[in-house]
Amino acid sequence: MEKILNVKDLHVSFKTYGGEVQAVRGVDFHLEKGETLAIVGESGCGKSVTSNSIMRLIPSPPGKITKGSISYRGQDLTQATEKQMRKIRGLDISMIFQDPMTALNPTLTIGSQLIEGLLQHKPVSKKEAKLKALRMMDLVGIPNPEERMKQYPHQFSGGMRQRIVIAMALICDPDLLIADEPTTALDVTIQAQILELFERIQEKTGVSIILITHDLGVVAKIADRIAVMYAGKIIEVGTKREIFYNPQHPYTQGLLKSVPRLDLREDTLIPIEGTPPDLFAPPEGCPFTARCPFAMEVCDKIYPFHSKLTATHNVECWLQDERGKRVAASAIASK
């Protein structure tokens, strides 16, 4: 398998009046060609900041990548110039945003917004670009594409707009598609349709997808691997099977328990108590300590080491560490 993206020790901070927000604090993950990696986690844990960093779309100032590397096909994007990034954006890496109602420019026709990316990146004529746009509209399932190209965003429903945004993101045949909560703003039935569309497109084009969501239902449907983020760190990563059937981090376990399931009764839904730590002054130890039912003395003092459970399953929790296990055992013994 070819690694197309490799993120190492990524740190991103925002300078604000209240101090420095450490939104992303050492994130490692990679992406293989043609796979779908889901990044899940509570609101504010740094999912969007991570994905925006890959595109180098962090508003700067106040935002800054303070440490780490993002290597895309061997090139470190953290070191790329703005001009180099402009060539990568839309052509190699594309992005889809959460709200399709605001992602399209209300004063430009769908057609002109669709083809502009293509015209920017490829030496094609307007006519060829239009033909490609028609094919893309067809691919994402928009009827009467010819006619629809001349219309404006307000003439489309939310689901249709998200299809257009997807067509727009894919028009240059990128290698990597970053979708930041692409279905959150949509109705449940439309959500399912859009997810199916992602699957179909991936089958057809072989595009790799980073899917950001806090909806584990979405993840269960289309992810190959799952990275769980908490307070600016990836605390557990594994294949879909590993995460759903063998979650090791207490936070992941809590997250799974808080998902509504059809086969269980309503009252078994248990939200995780408490709130994530303040990212102005994140704790030195495990950021989940205050909410963790298994927290030990060592937890809030030293950040847990990285434990490799399988070739694909990694977790950062003292419970997985031999020394942590000993501490836990002695703590239980002394009680």
């Binding site: 839309g90 594309s94 945003f97 420019n105 209300p106 920017q120 945004v165 727009m168």
Partner: peptide
Amino acid sequence: DYIKMAKAKGL
């Protein structure tokens, strides 16, 4: 958002 989208297209 549509400005961010335009940036994401590499314009």
